[in-house]
Design a protein around this nucleic acid. Sequence first.
DNA 1: GGAGAAGTAGAACGATCGGTCTTTCTGCTC
DNA 2: GAGCAGAAAGACCGATCGTTCTACTTCTCC
Lengths: 207, 207
Amino acid sequence: MSSTSELAPRDRLLRTASRLFYAEGLHTVGVDRLVTEAGVTRATFYRHFPAKEELIVAYLRGRSQEIRNAVAQIPAHRRGREALLLIMQSVAEDVRRADFRGCAFLNAAAEYPDPAHPVRRAVEEHHAWFFQTLRDQAAAAGHTDPDHTARLLVLLRDGALQGGALGSPDRVGDTLLKAVNDLLAAAEPTGRGDAAGHDVHSGTQGG
Amino acid sequence: MSSTSELAPRDRLLRTASRLFYAEGLHTVGVDRLVTEAGVTRATFYRHFPAKEELIVAYLRGRSQEIRNAVAQIPAHRRGREALLLIMQSVAEDVRRADFRGCAFLNAAAEYPDPAHPVRRAVEEHHAWFFQTLRDQAAAAGHTDPDHTARLLVLLRDGALQGGALGSPDRVGDTLLKAVNDLLAAAEPTGRGDAAGHDVHSGTQGG
DNA sequence: GGAGAAGTAGAACGATCGGTCTTTCTGCTC
DNA sequence: GAGCAGAAAGACCGATCGTTCTACTTCTCC
């Protein structure tokens, strides 16, 4: 009675791949594991994905889409500074998750050094989207150098996610949010006000 | 002739492993590649290292030692704030290197999810040493919360190294150093002015 | 000069890798 | 009911994985 038993074979494969690839790595998880845990035969696997590599790319694109959906749910009246905070808060939340194991995209990049490889391409697409999203919100917040703000927040995100995968997720999350607060204050056009009690109901991590 | 041809077989293996593991990943590089490029036979390989895993650990320990040696060369009269800047500047330099491919330790952690695995242990040892080093220097610089300063700088380092591996190393290096400047100013005991037009709000350091 | 460690050279081990194949069964549509 | 696509089940492929083995050579040290 697997939790994925009633899904279509392709979806079972994708869900199993997402779980195993993230938890154990891309090279470590073989096709045998995937088809066994997905309750699917090898023939079915290769009917839907011409190669394991394609499943990896599909896994990354799927995760990217989840994150984009979560960001898209931020209401329009929270554009700008508030959106930046919500996004970074959701990163801090991700670090604290029990099954947290770093950023799926950066982990994938570590396993695929060749920048021209499709897997790396998928990683860089997501990273570029995340940067652009932050840049837009920084511009909406009136930052004088939204590119720099976005680069900074991406750097903080990458550091929190990859460093947090080694341990002490609570402290990493706190350190991240404090750094965001301090640095946003320095980058903002006008001396800011509150920054105290924000409630977060956003989804997942970013780029 | 190979540049490593006159070294002892063990050193040739370590040097080759360091180059290949960093450039191409741990799982990707097999024993065949290692012995071929090191000009060593398989028997010699297994005479010096009981398993490939041991070579990986030796590779990580070697790289850690190189970094510790470099930090140890910082003269005593530069302890504190100056040492912190020197260390972070060397990180920024690393990102700009032509063969840069991210942090060897974080990349290794991405390939070895099990925290109890010897490879992960080696990664966390280095990470812990680096944190402690920054903490000591932050304390020497008189920071009120040297632990937080160290956590912050570790986070910035991780983000610069892993994010920088995806592209635009110059900008990542600049972003890192600017963030270091801004955040060190906020964390230092005496409000040292200027840096780059920021305002230090001295009230937010509690907790 | 003889012992023995350490090197080279290369075959071979079982296991697993990603990927292909045949066969059978189920469920849908005409 | 006929036809057919999709999936199940599992044998099978060549290649490569990490590892072990035998046989021969070279060097060092007593």
